[in-house]
Deep mutational scan, measured.
Amino acid sequence: PEDEKKAKEALKRANGDEDKAKEILRKLGVDPDRAEELLRRLR
């Protein structure tokens, strides 16, 4: 869904750096736990 698209985009923008991607997602208003879960799934 929408969050998943955001997560993929964030990872791309962060050049695969998960911590940076998490930060980006947090700024986009995605719940930190949700962000973590999404990134884990994309790994």
Rank of each mutant, 00 (worst) to 15 (best):
P1E: 15
P1T: 14
P1V: 13
P1W: 15
P1A: 14
P1S: 15
P1M: 13
E2A: 11
E2F: 10
E2G: 11
E2R: 07
E2D: 15
E2V: 08
E2S: 14
E2T: 12
E2Y: 08
E2M: 10
D3I: 08
D3S: 05
D3M: 11
E4D: 08
E4L: 15
E4I: 15
E4N: 06
E4H: 09
E4P: 04
E4Y: 15
K5D: 12
K5G: 08
K5C: 03
K5F: 13
K5L: 14
K6W: 15
K6C: 07
K6M: 15
K6H: 12
K6E: 07
A7R: 01
A7S: 03
A7G: 03
A7M: 05
A7D: 01
A7Q: 02
K8A: 12
K8M: 13
K8N: 05
K8C: 05
K8G: 05
K8Q: 10
E9R: 07
E9Y: 14
E9D: 11
A10D: 01
A10K: 00
A10I: 04
A10W: 02
A10H: 01
A10Y: 02
L11F: 06
L11Q: 02
L11T: 01
L11I: 07
L11D: 01
K12N: 09
K12T: 09
K12D: 11
K12M: 12
K12S: 10
K12L: 14
R13Y: 11
R13Q: 15
R13L: 15
R13D: 10
R13V: 12
R13E: 15
R13G: 06
R13K: 13
R13N: 10
R13S: 12
A14D: 00
A14W: 03
A14M: 03
A14F: 04
A14S: 07
A14L: 01
A14R: 00
A14N: 02
A14H: 03
N15K: 10
N15R: 10
N15W: 08
N15Q: 10
G16T: 01
G16F: 07
G16Y: 09
G16Q: 04
G16R: 03
G16K: 03
D17L: 04
D17R: 05
D17N: 10
D17P: 00
D17I: 04
D17Q: 04
D17G: 02
D17H: 06
D17T: 02
E18R: 11
E18W: 15
E18V: 14
E18A: 10
E18F: 15
E18T: 10
E18Q: 09
D19L: 13
D19Y: 11
D19C: 04
D19P: 06
D19M: 13
D19G: 11
D19I: 13
K20Q: 11
K20A: 12
K20S: 06
K20M: 13
K20L: 14
K20D: 06
A21E: 01
A21G: 02
A21W: 02
A21V: 03
A21K: 01
K22P: 00
K22R: 13
K22Y: 12
K22G: 04
K22M: 12
K22E: 03
K22H: 06
E23N: 06
E23Y: 05
E23T: 06
E23G: 06
E23I: 08
E23V: 07
I24W: 07
I24Q: 04
I24R: 02
L25K: 00
L25R: 00
L25W: 01
L25A: 01
L25Y: 01
L25Q: 00
R26D: 06
R26C: 07
R26H: 12
R26I: 15
K27N: 13
K27F: 11
K27G: 13
K27P: 01
L28W: 15
L28K: 04
L28D: 08
L28N: 06
L28R: 04
L28F: 07
L28E: 10
L28G: 06
G29Y: 02
V30S: 01
V30F: 15
V30H: 03
V30E: 02
V30G: 01
V30T: 03
D31K: 09
D31V: 05
D31I: 03
P32V: 08
P32L: 10
P32D: 10
P32M: 11
P32H: 08
P32C: 04
P32S: 11
P32E: 12
P32I: 09
P32Y: 08
D33N: 10
D33Y: 10
D33H: 12
D33Q: 13
D33V: 13
D33G: 11
D33P: 05
R34Y: 14
R34H: 10
R34G: 03
R34A: 10
R34C: 05
R34F: 10
R34P: 01
A35F: 07
A35N: 01
E36M: 08
E36W: 05
E36R: 06
E36L: 07
E36H: 06
E36I: 08
E37Y: 07
E37T: 06
E37M: 07
E37D: 08
E37R: 05
E37K: 06
E37N: 05
L38T: 03
L38S: 03
L38Y: 04
L38V: 05
L38D: 01
L39T: 01
L39A: 01
L39F: 08
L39E: 00
L39D: 00
L39N: 00
L39G: 00
L39S: 00
R40F: 08
R40T: 09
R40N: 12
R40P: 01
R40L: 09
R40H: 11
R40Q: 12
R41E: 10
R41K: 14
R41T: 09
R41Y: 11
R41A: 14
R41M: 14
L42Q: 04
L42F: 09
L42R: 02
L42P: 02
L42T: 03
L42W: 05
L42I: 12
L42K: 02
L42G: 03
L42M: 06
L42A: 05
R43S: 08
R43D: 05
R43A: 09
R43Y: 07
R43P: 04
R43V: 10
R43G: 07
R43H: 07
